[in-house]
Nucleic acid binder design. Structure first.
Length: 807
RNA sequence: GCCCGGGUGGCGGAAUGGGUAGACGCGCUGGACUUAAAAUCCAGUGUCGCAAGCGACGUGUGGGUUCAAGUCCCACCCCGGGCACCA
């Protein structure tokens, strides 16, 4: 009988949804399993690359369900963001309309794949029901001093006409549009993520995450230990702080450098003889793009015409400004120690500054700066001390003098969350001339996102043009006030949505305590590695804040993280912008969703990038076709004969396959799950050709369908029903293997002479060493290689291998 | 420059602790069925030598440890990713 792909798939997709098979509520009786993928931006059409990820998640949902877990697998939409807005600029269609249309399309495509979710929990962050809680969250952070507005140099994307967080600048360019990022001095909203730097770093340890991602976060947070101390400017012109990880080298400081944006610079320059030159240098540097500043060649800089005092030895050292010193890190000023720092060495040699070694380099050292550890020299009272001891000693001395202290610095910056764009959540703050910044009262939430005429960004949010929205009375004094017109970074939306899924419909609270307590944390989180220092860091931060506030029961949101590889075609990641996408439609029509799913699983290890091969789906379709014909009785024959060793053998094969499939799903080796099932069916076909037994076949085939259920659900559900196995496949328990049946009775033992395979013998699995040795020595083929030699040793590893060593 | 991954047939890949290298699939070759094609089925398919039972070689390169190395150690080459003047 023909397998009608379209009809069968539609039938089961309909049933799963109608019967709400994968909808769920809290149930204390069953262990919970919160299975989640990073919610998608509703970009419209899914290509094969997307389907790979959805297949993994769906496989897990179905598999854990069969294992008896109460599985929560929700779906929602990261629906604020630039693409909808850019489309609006191009077409005039309102981003809301555009977005909602895309959501519907994507839902139908997920359904077509056979992906199942608890749709009763669907959320979309562009809806007031959702973003109202973004705003509530913002207010809570503000109350706790974790949200603040301040003026500083920020990253500005000229193309998108908005500021960007540090995490969104990749090699000096905008993460979204890839155009160069410049610096601007602007007053912007930040979240104080740096306050959580230490906890974010420390708690990484307990997470079952890929090492790679943990390392990326570790580096991004960039904790360093050292000390800071004060340098006085000669002739009473002020003082400034420097930070160093090598205070032990302080005697080697022969100059000092301030960042061009350092606040003291203005004071030091005013009235000085090089005033104009210095000002134009500062001008030049600060207007340069990140990319231009990131040169690694010649270090630019200029002498300030002033001197500082090295506190260790009282010597006068020249003060410079240079662009290799960054205002955003440490104190924005450094001591220049050319002997022990390569950057300072470069700067000093380019200008003929004095170089003094204060750590003794190892014999034969021929490099420039010596950055390793060693014994202090030319360092007054530190002389003779090894680096670690010298550090202790000098810090104690600085503290005693009251000019320095131990210090810890992070590379992590506070998270810049305001954006000058339209399609995002409005920041719930009001500016009042007399009260200053006033939060919108909680009862007035949500601050509804207004419609606008003009979406084009012009350096401020298009919301600023909606006068009757902007102009409000100050909630505190009643005078005329103006709303904040910036919107929030969409990463704010995504930093807590997984909590909202636990209680998505709640209109009274952000979510119910008991519900989040039951479901959190996410047991398995799946997404792309590109979010390692973006979403995955922000989500951890916000979860910790909510935990501290008593809202989240979990301090860490994602217990286990899996980052899948991308799908590659023609040497590049499959993506719309590269124009190398493979659309699933023709494959759905020819082979069906199950064949696509199976090939996505089979294509390679889920962690690795995989190359799309057009003919690949044909292989998995052929496999499914064989499964079908087998179930329909079109292969071989069965009868009600007595069981014999053929039955025993095929049952062993099936139970071993089950054991391997279970282990391989657990360790995310989905590609070998598929190959194991293929190997199983090849064996079953051979078995049936040799005359199968009705009951044995039934047992084996049931196991096969149960294993195939999470992978190729439509076909396996249909067969399960047609063969009258009872109930719906999805709700059957995952089968158990019997070690006794799975045990192999005989195995092929390898016989080697001097490590080379010379023969093989079928032997009982429980063969002992002595017998194994005899088998090897008696083999005629082995004897040919043993003749004339003296047997020095025989290594037996029964029942695997016997290696005879001859001389 | 530093920190992670990774180099296995024509291709995707397999080989949890050192123990049959190449499972499974794609592709290709030959055959069966067919008037023909498609579909399906059967056989073959790492390289070299051989008519063949067989032998030699073979997991990026060069060394090493071991009875035995894709797997462990040392050095190097190449590819991918992350960070990149962070004091």
């Amino acid at each position: 009988m023909e397998y009608d792909v379209a009809a069968v798939e539609a039938k089961w997709q309909d049933l799963w949804e109608r019967e709400r098979i994968f909808y769920t509520t809290e149930d204390a009786e069953r262990p919970k399993y919160y299975n989640l993928q990073m919610y998608p931006y509703p970009s419209g059409d899914l290509h094969m690359g997307h389907l790979r990820n959805y297949t993994y998640v769906d496989l897990l949902t179905r598999y854990r369900r069969m294992q008896g877990y109460n599985v929560l697998s929700p779906m929602g939409w990261d629906s604020f963001g630039l693409p909808a807005e850019n489309a609006a600029i191009a077409t005039g269609i309102h981003p809301r309309e555009f977005t909602e249309r895309q959501i519907l399309r994507m839902k139908s495509q997920l359904r077509r794949l056979g992906a199942v979710y608890d749709w009763s929990r669907e959320l979309a962050c562009h809806t007031p029901e959702y973003y109202r809680w973004d705003q509530w969250l913002f207010l809570k952070l503000y109350e706790r001093g974790l949200a603040y507005k301040s003026r500083s140099a920020v990253n500005w994307c000229e193309q998108d006409q908005t500021v960007l967080a540090n995490e969104q600048v990749v090699s000096g360019a905008c993460e979204r549009c890839n155009s160069p990022v410049t610096r601007r001095d602007l007053s912007q909203w930040h979240f104080r993520i740096t306050e959580y730097a230490d906890r974010l770093l420390q708690d990484l340890e307990g997470l079952d995450w890929p090492e790679r991602v943990k390392t990326m976060q570790e580096n991004w947070i960039g904790r360093s230990e050292g000390s800071e101390f004060t340098i006085e400017v000669a002739d009473g012109q002020g003082e400034f702080e420097v930070y160093t990880t090598r205070p032990d080298t302080i005697f080697g400081m022969t100059f000092a450098v301030l960042a061009p944006e350092h606040p003291l610079v203005e004071q030091l320059v005013a009235g000085g003889e090089h005033e104009d030159d210095i000002r134009s240098y500062v001008e030049k540097v600060s207007s340069a793009s990140e990319l231009e500043r990131m040169t690694t060649g010649e270090k630019s800089g200029i002498f300030l015409g002033r001197y500082g005092i090295n506190p260790a030895n009282g010597r006068r050292v020249p003060l410079y400004i240079a662009d290799y010193v960054l205002m955003g890190y440490g104190t924005g000023a450094i001591m220049g120690v050319p002997g022990e720092d390569q950057r300072d060495w470069d700067f000093a040699t380019q200008r003929g500054l004095r170089i003094l070694r204060t750590v003794k380099p190892p014999p034969g050292f021929e490099g420039e700066a010596y950055v390793g550890e060693g014994v202090a020299i030319n360092s007054g009272f530190l002389n003779g001390l090894p680096t670690a001891a010298a550090k202790q000693r000098i810090i104690a001395w600085l503290e005693e003098k009251g000019i320095g202290r131990r210090a810890i610095k992070y590379r992590l910056h506070d998270w810049l969350v305001s954006r000058q764009r339209y399609w995002g959540c409005p920041i719930p703050m009001i500016n009042c001339d007399s009260c200053g910044l006033v939060p919108v009262p909680e009862k007035d939430l949500p601050v509804i996102h207004p419609d606008v005429e003009e979406y084009r960004p012009k350096g401020q949010s298009p919301l600023a043009l909606v006068a009757d929205w902007v102009e409000v009375d100050c909630p505190r004094c009643g005078a005329a006030g103006r709303r904040e017109t910036d919107t929030m970074d969409t990463f704010v939306d995504s930093s807590w949505y997984f909590l909202r899924y636990c209680d998505a419909g709640n209109s009274e609270r952000i979510f119910d305590d008991d519900k989040v307590k039951y479901w959190m944390a996410v047991d398995q989180y799946i997404g792309g590695v590109e979010h390692a220092v973006l979403h995955l860091l922000y989500a951890r931060f916000i979860t910790k804040v909510l935990y501290d506030m008593g809202y989240s029961p979990a301090e860490e949101p994602f217990t286990r993280l899996f980052t899948q590889g991308m799908l590659v075609k023609d040497g590049a990641k499959m993506s719309k912008s590269r124009g190398n996408v493979v659309t699933p439609e023709p494959y759905y029509e020819r082979y069906g969703a199950d064949a696509i799913r199976l090939y996505e699983l089979f294509i390679g290890p889920p962690t690795d990038d995989a190359v799309w091969i057009d003919g690949g789906v044909e292989g998995t379709a052929r496999f499914l076709d064989r499964v079908w014909r087998l179930g329909m009785g079109e292969v071989g024959s069965v009868s009600d004969r007595e069981p014999d060793r053929r039955d025993h053998a095929i049952l062993g094969v099936a139970h071993r396959a089950l054991r391997k499939v279970t282990a391989d799903i657990d360790r995310f080796h989905f590609n070998t799950v598929v190959s194991t099932l293929m190997a199983l069916i090849n064996e079953v076909i051979a078995y049936l050709r040799g005359g199968g037994r009705t009951e044995t076949f039934r047992q084996v085939y049931q196991m096969l369908l149960l294993m195939l259920g999470p992978l190729a659900p439509h076909l396996s559900h249909e067969l399960w029903e047609r063969l009258g196995y009872g109930g719906i496949l999805a709700t059957q328990p995952w089968p158990k293997w019997d070690e006794e049946i799975a045990r192999e009775e005989t195995v092929v033992m390898v016989l080697q002479v001097n490590g080379k395979v010379r023969d093989r013998a079928e032997v009982p699995v429980d063969i002992d060493e002595a017998t194994a040795e005899q088998v090897a020595l008696r083999s005629p083929r082995m004897q040919r290689w043993l003749e004339g030699g003296r047997i020095a040793r025989v290594i037996t590893r029964p029942p695997r291998i016997v290696n005879v060593v001859v001389e």
